[in-house]
Design a protein around this nucleic acid. Sequence first.
DNA 1: AATTAAACGGACCCTTCGGTCCGCTTGGTG
DNA 2: CACCAAGCGGACCGAAGGGTCCGTTTAATT
Lengths: 247, 247
Amino acid sequence: MRRPRDTARPACHNRHEMETQPKRLRADAERNRQRLVDAATELFRERGLEVGVGEIAERAGVGRGTLFRNFPSKDALVIAVVVERIRESIERGRALLSEEDPSSAVFALIDEAIERQAEDRALFEALAGDWIAHPEIRAAHDDMLAVLEQILDRAQAAGSIRADVSAVDVMLAIKGVCEVQRLFPGLPRDIGRRQLELVKAGLTPGGEFVPLSGEAPQCADLDCAMARRAGAEPAELTLAEAGRATA
Amino acid sequence: MRRPRDTARPACHNRHEMETQPKRLRADAERNRQRLVDAATELFRERGLEVGVGEIAERAGVGRGTLFRNFPSKDALVIAVVVERIRESIERGRALLSEEDPSSAVFALIDEAIERQAEDRALFEALAGDWIAHPEIRAAHDDMLAVLEQILDRAQAAGSIRADVSAVDVMLAIKGVCEVQRLFPGLPRDIGRRQLELVKAGLTPGGEFVPLSGEAPQCADLDCAMARRAGAEPAELTLAEAGRATA
DNA sequence: AATTAAACGGACCCTTCGGTCCGCTTGGTG
DNA sequence: CACCAAGCGGACCGAAGGGTCCGTTTAATT
C-alpha cells in the first residue's frame, strides 16, 4: 500500500486458502511465521501500519527474506494482521446483540469501537484511508457495519437514538472521534471522552440536557498535548537548546 | 517535516524578517519566488503537503535549485504557503465578529472552517498532525482559536450554544468532521453535511429536534465513495478484472 | 558595451523503504 | 546417518524524495 500508484501486479498469493492444510510448513517455518505475525501485530498496534518491514523482521528475530517468503508483500502481512483484529471487534459487537437494553448496547458499541481504535493504531488506520479499499478489509468492515446496523435498529426502535441516522452516519461519527484522538495523541483522555459525549448528545433524540464530564479543555491543554507528543523522542533537541553553550 | 526524526539543524533562515525590504531581490528572482509560492499553493491545496519539491518546481517552471535558494527547506515553503492561508481564514472569522446574531455567527464560522478545509488539503493538514507543532503554524492556529473563542462566548451568552463546551471542544469537533471528509474524499457532500448537523445538534443546549437533511447514507454510498476515489487512476485494474480472460 | 555578482538549473548525493536473489543452514525422512 | 529440498538471512536492487553543488546565464550597474 504505497502512497502513489501501486503496480497492477495481481500478486495472486496463497492460492488454496480454504483448504485445511494448504502446504504443511516445516516446524521452524511455522514458528517464524507466527513470530512475524506477532511482531507485526504489536508494532502496528503501537506505531501504525507505516512501520518498516525491516523493523518487523528484526523484532521477530528473523531476516527480511523470511518475511517475504511468508507474505508476498508487506500489504499481505498488514491484511493478515488487521483482518484478524477486525474480526475480534466484530465478535465483541455480536456479543452486545444479546444485551437487554438496546440503548446501552449502542453506546457500549460506540465506546468500545473508539476504545479499541484508540489503543490500536493498526485497527484504526485499516478502517480508514486507503487501506479500506482492500477487498478483504472492506469485507470485514462491511460485516462490522452490519452488526452496528442491527444494534442501531433496536435502539432506534426503542427510541433511544434519533430515527433519522443510519449506521453509516454513526460509523462516520465514530471515525471522527477516533481521528481526533489520533491527531493529538497527547491529548488527555478526558477531552476525548467529552468529544464522545458531544457526539452522543447529537445522536440522542433530544430532551434532557446531559452535561459533559470533566473540565472544559483550554488552549493550554493543547500545548500540553503537543509537548507530550513531541516529548516522545526529540527531547534531545530541547535539552540541547536548554544547555546552550556557544549559540 | 519528514516522518521519523528531523536533523536538529536550526536552519536559521531569513534573519531580518520584519524589515521593509530584507534583501532587495533581483527582478527575475522575485518573479520566480512568486511563481514557486503560487505553484506550491495550488498543488498543496489539491493534493496535500506531500507533493514533492520536484513537482512544485516543475509547475513553477523553475529548477529545483531555485526552489531551495528561495526557501531553505521544503518545510519553509510549506510554512510560507500555509500560514498565509490560515491568516486568510482568521480574517474571515474576524469578519463574523460583526455579525448581529451570535448564534448564526458561530454556525457560520463552523461551516466556513469545514468548507475551507474541505477544499484546501494544505490548510487542513497544517492544522492537524505533525505540522501544527511548528511555531509559526502554531501561532496562527492559536490566533484562530482566539477568534473562535470570542464568537463562541457571545453565542454561549445568548444561550444558543451549550455553556459547558470550550473553544477547544468546538475546534476538535470541527477537526473530526474535516477528517472524515478527508478520509472519504468521494463521499457525497450531503453526508458530510449530515455529519455537521449532528455535531451542531450536539452543541446546542437541546430542546427542539432538528431533523438531518438529505437521505440517510447506506453501505452502498460507501461503495460509491470508494469507487469514486479509486476511480481516479486504477480504473485499469477493475476493467482488467471485469474482462476476465483465463481466470 | 563591459563587468560582476546574483540567480539559475539540473546533475548529483544521501537516506529510506519495499522487494529480490542466492549461497548457506537445517529439519525431516528413508 | 545421509541426503536434500525447504527454509534462512543479509547483501543487493530500484524508486522516490529531500537537499547540495557548480558551471553557466543574466539582470543590474557604470
